[in-house]
Simulated assay, not measured.
Amino acid sequence: MGDTRDDEAVVIGGGVIGLTTAVVLAERGTRVRLWSPQAPHETTSAVAGGLVWPYRIEPQEQALDWSVRSFRHFSWLAEQPGTTGVRLVRGSMPGGSPPPEWTALTGTPPRTPLVDMQTYLPYLVARFEAAGGRWEQRAARSLAEAAAEAPVVVNCAGLGARELVPDPSVRPVRGQVLVVEDPGVEEWYVVATGGASETTYILPQPYGVVLGGTAHDGAEDRRPDPATAEAIVRRCAAVDPRLADAKVLEHRVGLRPFRPRVRLEAGRLPDGRGGTALCVHNYGHGGAGVTVSWGCAVDAVRLVGPATGE
């Protein structure tokens, strides 16, 4: 057990929620250590198509607020010099009926941030480290382990919260996509299908076009299924025939960490020294982790309280 300081925090989880929360904490002056058993490119976030749009997340009203605030930060990132991985791209969503607040942001037809996660996650790591944060490849065996090393613990473990908290209400929603060579796609396309297990989306990224997808509730197999991939290509080629013969570059599978409601709240943990540590939970974002990341991060940091050491 190491010595602790009043201005230290441990963030658990190296996906987009954990990284974004760690950035916000570090940039306000907190000494942050981020624990993750996986490198950022190995997390579920790395599989995300990257369209900033509320999807499979509850509660919807709160999710819209988080999404709107995140949209504004992503739009700012799209205008920054250097490489953030964020672009503003036009697209279409047949059958979709977004709330007026979202339409006011995106316009008609919608123009929304599209995030290249292969570039964006390293950008977040670099921004975190530039603010003095320290990323550690380390699995938290328990919340108490982290509480013994810092007075503030922020739990952004995603699907890992099932065992870590433990929280049996967290469950996986399996998503499978594939990446193909870009035949000239300039706009994104998404069919809004609510809670359907099969969806159709086409997302042009710098490295190729992401074709999707699936949303299989409770499925945990991370191996790509060839039949599912073929069905995805058929659905997408019906929208853009150029995709039928596009060369397949990669198959991807990720497990979205769904919860009936996002858990964003604070509590206390024994610190192993006769006292307690503050624990802020920020997990269960389903398929909208990228979309709500900045709004949730700011709210999680507010629960931490005033910056210490100032």
Score class of each variant (00 low, 15 high):
256 R>L: 04
256 R>V: 01
257 P>Y: 06
257 P>H: 00
257 P>T: 00
257 P>S: 01
257 P>D: 10
257 P>F: 00
257 P>W: 05
258 F>W: 15
258 F>S: 15
258 F>V: 14
258 F>A: 15
258 F>D: 15
259 R>L: 02
259 R>E: 08
260 P>D: 14
260 P>Q: 05
260 P>T: 06
261 R>V: 14
261 R>I: 03
262 V>I: 14
262 V>E: 11
262 V>H: 05
262 V>M: 11
263 R>I: 10
263 R>W: 10
263 R>C: 08
263 R>F: 09
263 R>M: 07
263 R>K: 11
264 L>Y: 09
264 L>F: 10
264 L>C: 06
264 L>A: 05
264 L>G: 08
265 E>M: 11
265 E>T: 12
265 E>G: 09
265 E>C: 10
266 A>S: 14
266 A>Q: 13
266 A>P: 02
267 G>M: 06
267 G>E: 13
268 R>V: 13
268 R>M: 14
269 L>Y: 09
269 L>I: 03
269 L>S: 07
269 L>F: 05
269 L>D: 06
270 P>M: 11
270 P>T: 01
271 D>S: 10
271 D>F: 11
271 D>Y: 08
271 D>M: 08
271 D>A: 08
272 G>F: 13
272 G>R: 01
272 G>Y: 10
272 G>T: 06
272 G>P: 08
272 G>I: 12
272 G>L: 11
272 G>S: 07
273 R>Q: 15
273 R>H: 15
273 R>A: 15
273 R>N: 07
274 G>C: 04
274 G>Y: 10
274 G>W: 12
274 G>T: 02
274 G>H: 04
274 G>V: 02
274 G>K: 01
274 G>S: 07
275 G>E: 13
275 G>A: 11
275 G>T: 03
276 T>Q: 13
276 T>N: 03
277 A>P: 03
277 A>W: 06
278 L>A: 13
278 L>N: 13
278 L>E: 14
279 C>F: 09
279 C>K: 04
280 V>F: 06
280 V>A: 07
280 V>C: 06
280 V>W: 05
280 V>E: 09
281 H>I: 03
281 H>D: 15
281 H>C: 03
281 H>P: 04
281 H>V: 02
282 N>V: 06
282 N>R: 07
282 N>H: 09
282 N>L: 07
283 Y>R: 00
283 Y>E: 12
283 Y>F: 10
284 G>S: 04
285 H>S: 03
285 H>V: 01
285 H>F: 07
286 G>L: 02
286 G>N: 03
286 G>T: 00
286 G>I: 00
286 G>A: 06
286 G>R: 00
286 G>S: 04
286 G>H: 02
286 G>P: 04
286 G>D: 11
287 G>R: 01
287 G>K: 00
288 A>M: 07
288 A>D: 12
289 G>T: 01
289 G>E: 11
289 G>I: 00
289 G>A: 07
289 G>P: 02
290 V>A: 12
290 V>N: 10
